[in-house]
Simulated assay, not measured.
Amino acid sequence: MQDYDYEQQRKKIREKREKAQELLRAKKKSTPEKKPDWFKIKLPGGDNYTELKKNLRDNKIWTVCEEASCPNLTECWAAKTATMMILGGTCTRACRFCHVDTGNPKGVINQEEIANAANMAKVMALNYLVITSVDRDDLPDFGASHFANVVESVRENHPKTLVEVLVPDFNAVEEHMDTLAKSNPFVIAQNVETVKRLTHVVRDRRAGYEQSLNCLKYYKDNYPHISTKTSLMVGLGETMEELIECMDDLRSVNCDIITFGQYLRPTQRHLAVERYYTPAEFEELKNIAYEKGFKFVASGPLVRSSYKAADYLKHLREQGHEI
């Protein structure tokens, strides 16, 4: 029997440790320690904010805007726009940019969300409500029917509120996408999140760049009256050429709306920020997107998927559409 080579084993351990330390040093070097000045924001406040928050607590309603500590909360609430998360707080996927808990919800659905959505629209006198969710791969229809029930509840009980949905991919099953679309939301959003090359680094392995594009295409091909939307984070190591390629891919499936926002690292366990884009670069992305034919573009350091979502409605009305 050959003797175990302890020295060789120690050498391998040392090499692995040194390599790991080298990678850590490189990551620290490439990751800015301090956010740029343009990330300074005002804390939520004002009489309208205080009154709305009290009404929400009295009615036991919580918004994504608050739970995610959204920097745009006061601005959106003043415009009577808000975001609500449904299907619980545990996601069945584990994207490397997202701070939502990952696990197995075991098929549990809170049916009170259906009434809560309509009540939230009423309490906040909303013009525009964005409904989003975690991924629910544990459900037979991936949560599509619950999404549809929530949308229909808002439309029936508070018809003045337009509803945008930011939905999972429902595993690209057309039957489930039909279930959602037949509830007739104003906008259907499905986020590609990042450029093609970085998809499998940034997103869960069950998500896919082509799959998201195919979902957007299916909704537009079969429900052309519903606007489609997507969002990208920047600062993950993508190039401008890749972002332009992504815009071309999205326009090839007739995606109507696109937003660009800066990726911010939730914790040290998540992907590092490779760089911060300047306001001028966000303006350049916005101009390119409009040149590509997108109907509406939101682009800026603090822009998130649902940021100023109702501005699309304002944009349409300014163009003469009766909505």
Results as ranks from 00 to 15, higher is better:
residue 76 C to K: 00
residue 21 Q to M: 15
residue 202 V to I: 12
residue 94 A to M: 12
residue 215 C to S: 11
residue 175 E to G: 09
residue 124 M to I: 07
residue 129 L to S: 03
residue 241 E to K: 15
residue 134 V to T: 11
residue 274 E to R: 06
residue 310 A to E: 03
residue 56 L to P: 00
residue 283 E to F: 15
residue 117 A to D: 09
residue 147 F to C: 00
residue 204 D to M: 07
residue 199 T to W: 03
residue 279 P to V: 08
residue 235 G to Y: 02
residue 234 V to F: 04
residue 239 T to Y: 08
residue 305 S to P: 05
residue 21 Q to T: 12
residue 110 N to W: 06
residue 172 A to V: 08
residue 162 L to F: 11
residue 29 K to Y: 11
residue 282 F to R: 04
residue 282 F to W: 08
residue 74 T to H: 09
residue 103 G to H: 04
residue 102 T to N: 11
residue 34 K to Q: 14
residue 234 V to C: 08
residue 282 F to H: 01
residue 191 N to Y: 12
residue 42 K to Q: 15
residue 154 V to Q: 06
residue 236 L to M: 06
residue 188 I to Q: 03
residue 150 V to G: 02
residue 268 Q to R: 13
residue 302 L to R: 05
residue 311 D to R: 14
residue 17 R to Q: 15
residue 213 L to P: 00
residue 159 P to Q: 04
residue 218 Y to E: 01
residue 299 S to K: 00
residue 11 K to N: 13
residue 270 H to F: 13
residue 98 C to N: 01
residue 226 I to T: 01
residue 28 K to D: 10
residue 51 E to H: 10
residue 18 E to R: 14
residue 312 Y to K: 06
residue 152 E to W: 05
residue 134 V to D: 02
residue 250 L to N: 00
residue 190 Q to V: 11
residue 40 K to W: 15
residue 188 I to A: 01
residue 276 Y to R: 13
residue 13 I to Y: 05
residue 271 L to A: 03
residue 46 G to R: 10
residue 195 V to T: 14
